[in-house]
Structures are given as structure tokens and as C-alpha cells.
Amino acid sequence: MPEHPDFTPSPNLLTTQEAIRLITIFQSAGVTKLRLTGGEPLMRQDLPEIAQAAVDLNLAVSLTTNGVLLSRRLPALLRAGVSGINLSLDSLCPHTFSLLTRRPPQVHERVLSALHDAVTEPSLSVKLNVVVMSPHNHLTLPDFVRLTESHPLSVRFIEYMPFAGNRWKHASFVPYSEMLRSITHHYGPLSAVATHPNDTAKYFRVPGFQGTIGFISSMSAPFCAGCNRIRVTADGALKTCLFGEHEVSLRDIMRQGASDEQVLETIRRALHDKHFALGGKGDMFGIAAGDNRSMVRIGG
């Protein structure tokens, strides 16, 4: 969490109907999956309505959340048809959690309770996202892996990526190869799990464990060639790459009276102009030198 997060005024955010309209347009162009992210998507009271509209269009709908409000809102999300939860939790230690999130340590227990509620819900696919940072949590990876022993949970270790306000520095960066070495040193050889060409993570399993572990190596081994993802921010900006600074406001053209076909053509042009890798930044140092949004204003 940045020290001074730049929150977007409510009138600048997509309305419920604008969000549903964009989902409908993307679905008409062949999109089959929708992930509702943030900031924190559960801050939106209309989230079940948006999820239900997407499910009614036969989209597979999942959610990325910090878990603070999840237990209270999970029943409504399940009724709406949400089938996947990605819960972001960078530490199993309340003190470190508080340091990273700028929330009281007691909130940590609420997030762990939400994780339990999610993994014990048989209709949900649950992933735990862990951004690995030295010295905060890079020595605790085996503890996270232990969570996969008795639950069909996927714990995904994510390389620390530079964004505005997150005080990224190379000294805190832990590459995928080092994470893997640490875990195999503790648990022994891992079993590889088959993945799809468009997957963002490399998956493994500790033999005998129910769940899996994944590594998202965005910086040390980018997967840009297989990327089939596109982002629309809460204020309606189209980002064809997480790391790219270029944005196109779909909100503005809708509010100016654009037809669905005109919106779709704007999306097509943006995709045509997309850089092949890392938003054209070259590497993590090029990204760090750029002027992208903070992650809380892009979405996970």
C-alpha cells in the first residue's frame, strides 16, 4: 500500500451500467473470462450485480481481493455465480502484514478467516497471491507452501514489480529461480503441473500435497508472448499491458455517445498498437523509471 494512495473521485468511476456495458462489448468480441480486481473491488456495493450480469453472459467470473471484507460479502458473490477467488496476502505474520498493508495487525486474523471461508467452499477455486520481497517475507515461503498440504489451494509467489508509490528497489527483488531453490531445499523435488500456454504462472506440487504452488516471473522470465489479458481500470481506462503507461479512456468515449461498435473499434486499435513485451519498457529497470499508475489504481 502506498503511503499516500491517490483515490479516484466517485464521479470518475465507471457506473454500474457502464461497467456492464463494457463487459457485454468484450463478451461480444470473444472474451470468456472476467476478473474483478481493484484497488479493492469489494468496496463497490454493486459488485454482485456486475458479477451476475457477467455470469448471465456465460462468462467465468472470478475476484481478486485483499480479503478484509470477503467473509461478509462471500454469500452474495456465490449467489451471483462467482467461481474463483484470488486472495492477496503477503505475510503470515501479523506484524509484517501491518507494515506492508498499513492496517492494524488484528485485520490479519480477519483475512486468514476469509481465506478459510473461501477454501472450505466447494464451488470456489481459490488462489493465494504472495508478492515476495526481501527482507519482509522471502524466508517464509515454506510456511506458505504448507498451506497447500491439506487444502486444494493454489499459492502463487509473485516477483516484486515496480509501480508508482510502492518503493520498489532491486535489493528487495527475489527472482523466481531463488524462490524455487528455497522451496525445493525445504521440501525436496517438486512435481511439475501441466499449464496452458496462456497461463501466467508456472505450477508445481509438493508430492502428497492437495494444492499447488505457482511462480509468476513477470520480471525475470516474462510470459508476454502468451499473454491474452486486457485491463480496464475502475475509471474506465483501457490498459493493454500492466506495465505500459499508455491508456485509452473507454469511459469518456461512452459518455460522449459512442456506439458499441465504436467502443469496440477503439479497443481493437489499442490492441493493434500494443508493445510486444513489458509495455515497451525493456526490463524491470525501464519499468521503474517510467510513470505508470500505482498498482492500487490499476488492479491485480
Rank of each mutant, 00 (worst) to 15 (best):
A237W: 07
T233W: 14
A118M: 15
L100T: 13
M219Q: 08
R21D: 15
P41K: 02
T32V: 05
R156E: 02
E40D: 08
G39R: 11
E159I: 01
I216D: 04
H196R: 11
L47G: 08
R181K: 11
A237G: 08
A54I: 04
S191P: 00
L13S: 09
L13C: 04
D199I: 01
V111C: 02
F157Y: 01
R73L: 07
K274P: 04
V61H: 08
M179I: 09
T148Y: 07
A258Q: 01
L153H: 09
I253G: 00
Q45K: 13
A221T: 01
F215H: 01
I50D: 06
H275P: 11
G84R: 14
M179K: 02
N66T: 14
P175L: 11
K127V: 06
V155I: 10
M219S: 02
A171Y: 03
V68Y: 06
P11F: 08
V145D: 04
P94F: 05
G38R: 06
L70I: 06
P105L: 07
R255V: 01
D199F: 04
S259W: 10
V248C: 02
S88L: 06
D235W: 06
G211V: 03
R205W: 13
N12S: 12
S88F: 02
L190N: 02
T200N: 12
F163D: 03
V31R: 03
M284A: 15
